[in-house]
Design a binder for these strands. Structure first.
Lengths: 333, 333
DNA sequence: TTGAAAGCGGTACCAA
DNA sequence: TTGGTACCGCTTTCAA
C-alpha cells in the first residue's frame, strides 16, 4: 500500500494525494475528502523509512536505560515512560527504549543514535554528576532532556525531584520526634540524586549541631543491607536510618530484623521513591515520592519543544517531593 | 557524512565503498581496508532511514509493553529485555520498547507498526488466553514471538514457564507437609499464565481428593490483599495460600498480618516470579522462578530465525520453573 | 488546484 | 575488481 497505488486507484497524482493527506490548504476540499476516505478504506499508512529519509527526521524519541546486570529501580523508568509515551504518540513520535549498560561501551550507543540519525531526541535518565552522556549530547547538538540534574556545565532541559529539601525535611521531622543519632545509607556519590539527598540530610544535621553519619552503598537491597548491618553493629547505633531509595530501605529493614530490632520501635526507617512494594513492606514503609506522571509530562513537553527548535533556556525544573507517612517511623526508644 | 562524501574523499565510487563496508567478497582486500579505515576515521555511519527504505527492512525489533497507568510490575520485562538486547544488537537489530495500554487502542499500535513497517519483528508479552494481538499478528504475517502461551489457534513461536507443573509441585509439597486447606489467589483468568498456574494447583488438589478454593483478583498487591482478607475471614480459613505472583503474595502477607497471623507458623504463603523484593519480604518469600535470561535468549533466537525466513514450526518451548525455598512455608499449625 | 520531477542516502543489478 | 544507475516511497519545489 504505497502512495503510488493509492494515487492510481484514485486517478490522481501522488503529489495531490500526499498533500491532501498532510492537510495542505491548496487542495480542493472535495478532493481532500475523497483522498482521505480512500486512504482510510485501503488502510494506507505512509512508509516510515521513506518519510524519514525525505524529511530528515525520525519521529523517534529514545530513552536509553542504563541497565546493570543487577537491577536497580527500573520500574520507575517504565512508569516514566508510560507517562511520556502518550504525549509523544499524540505528536506522532514513537518513544522507544534502548538498553545500554554503563561503561566504556555506553557512549557508542549514543554515537550510533546520533550519527545514524536514529532519533530526533533523547531522554537521559539516572544522571550522574559527571555524566559523559550529557557531555556528548551537548556537543553533538541533539535535543535531549534529562531526568535528574548533573554537574555538567551547559544549559539543557531537566526535571528533577528536590531531593535535598525532601531529605532535609524528613531529617528535621525525625529530629523533632527526638531522634539524635540519625544515619544515612547513601547511594553511590557518582549519581547526582545521591549527593542531593545526602546534602539535605547533612544540612539538617548540621543545623541541629549533630554529626552526620553516612555510609555509601550500592543502590540496591543487598548493598544497603550490608551497610545497615555495619551501622547497627556499631557501639552506639543509630535510632533512625534514612535510605536513599526504597529498595535500599528494604535492605535496611532486613538488617534490623536480623539484629532483632523492631521497626519502628527500636529503629525508624525512611525510603524514597514510593515503589509499589513499599506499602506492603513490614512495617509499611514511610517514604517520599516524586510524581513521575508529572515529571514525565514536563520532560515530554520540553523535549518536543526542543525538537521543534526552541532553545533550552528556562527548561529546568526541580519538583517538590511528596512525603508519604506510613508505619516505619516513630519516636526514638 | 554520507556515502557520497566518503567515496569522493577516497576517489572511489559509492558502489565500491558500499560493498567494501558490507564485506562483500568482490572488493580488493587493499581497497576494503582503505575504505574501512577512512570510514572509521571520518566516523561514517550509514543513514538508517535510507538503508531501511532501500532494503525494505528496519533492523528494529519491538517489544510492546501492555502498560496500565499506575501499575508496573514490569521489572520482569526489563530483565527479559536485558537478556534479549545483546543478542539482537549482535545481529544489528535495535530492540525498542513501546508502551501500549491494553484496550481498544492497543491494536492500533500494532497496526501502526505493521502497516508503517516500523519493525521487522515483535515480542509479545503477558499473553492473554484470547489474545487480539496474536490474532492480528498471525493474520498480518509479521514475525513475532510470544513470552507466554495463549489459546489462539495457529503456529507461532513462544517460550513459557511451566506454570502448571510448578503450581502442581508446590501444592504437592504443601500437601506432603500436612496442609489440607490450601487456597489459591489467582490472577485474572484472561491471562494465560493465570489459568496454567491455577490448573496445576487444582490438579494437585484433585489428586489428593481435596476441594480447590480459588479467588480471582487483580494481579497486584491491592487485589490480592483484598482477596486474602476474604479468604482469611472465612470460618475455616486456609493454612496455606498460593499467590499467582510475588506481588500478589505481598498482598497476602499483609492480609495475614492484619489478621494477626504469623507467616509461616499460622499460614504458609508462596509466590511466583522471584522479584528482588521477595528475598526482602518478612518473612523472606518462598517462590518460583522462570529463568528470564534463558527465556530471553530463546525468544531472541526464535525471532531472529523467523525474521531470517525460517518457519515457526517447533519453535515452542515450555521451560521448567525453579522452586526457591525461603521462609514463608512451614507445616500447618 | 493539480501534476511532473528532483532528490533524501543507501543497495544491488548490470556493464565495463 | 570497479563504476554507472535504477530504484525504495515520500515530500516539496516549480510549472502548468
Amino acid at each position: 500500500m504505497s502512495l503510488k497505488t493509492l494515487a492510481q486507484s484514485l486517478g490522481l497524482s501522488i503529489t495531490t494525494v500526499s498533500r491532501a493527506l498532510d492537510g495542505y490548504a491548496d487542495v480542493a476540499p472535495g478532493t481532500r475528502e475523497r483522498v482521505r476516505a480512500a486512504a482510510d478504506a485501503m488502510g494506507y499508512r505512509p512508509n516510515a523509512a521513506a518519510r524519514r529519509l525525505r524529511r530528515g527526521t525520525t519521529e523517534v524519541v529514545m530513552l536509553v536505560l542504563p541497565t546493570l546486570p543487577g537491577r536497580f529501580d527500573e520500574p520507575l523508568y517504565i512508569e516514566l515512560m508510560g507517562a511520556m509515551g502518550g504525549l509523544f504518540a499524540a505528536e506522532g513520535f514513537d518513544l522507544t527504549l534502548l538498553a545500554a549498560p554503563p561503561g566504556v561501551e555506553e557512549i557508542k550507543t549514543y554515537r550510533r543514535i546520533v550519527e545514524g540519525r536514529r532519533a530526533d531526541g533523547l531522554v537521559v535518565v539516572r544522571t550522574r554528576r559527571d555524566d559523559a552522556r550529557i557531555h556528548y549530547l551537548l556537543q553533538a547538538g541533539l535535543p535531549f532532556v534529562a531526568m535528574g540534574r548533573s554537574d555538567v556545565p551547559g544549559i539543557y532541559p531537566f526535571v528533577d525531584g528536590d531531593g535535598t529539601a525532601a531529605f532535609r525535611d524528613v531529617t528535621r521531622r525525625l529530629l523533632a520526634l527526638g531522634h539524635r543519632r540519625i544515619a544515612h545509607v547513601a547511594a553511590p556519590s557518582a549519581f547526582a540524586f545521591a549527593t542531593y539527598r545526602r546534602a539535605g540530610y547533612e544540612a539538617a544535621m548540621a543545623e541541629a549541631g549533630l554529626p552526620a553519619t553516612c555510609v555509601e552503598a550500592p543502590a540496591d537491597e543487598v548493598g544497603a543491607h550490608l551497610a545497615a548491618l555495619d551501622l547497627l553493629g556499631r557501639p552506639t547505633r543509630p535510632t533512625a536510618i534514612l535510605a536513599a531509595t526504597d529498595r535500599m530501605a528494604f535492605g535496611v529493614l532486613r538488617a534490623a530484623r536480623e539484629h532483632g530490632l523492631d521497626v519502628p520501635r527500636h529503629l525508624s526507617v525512611v525510603g524514597h521513591d514510593n515503589v509499589p512494594a513499599a506499602a506492603f513492606a513490614d512495617p509499611a514503609l514511610t517514604t517520599m515520592e516524586l510524581p513521575l506522571a508529572e515529571a514525565g509530562a514536563r520532560l515530554a513537553g520540553m523535549l518536543l519543544a526542543r525538537i521543534g527548535g526552541e532553545p533550552p533556556d528556562g527548561m529546568q525544573e526541580v519538583l517538590p517531593v511528596r512525603a508519604i507517612e506510613r508505619h516505619s517511623v516513630a519516636p526514638p526508644p
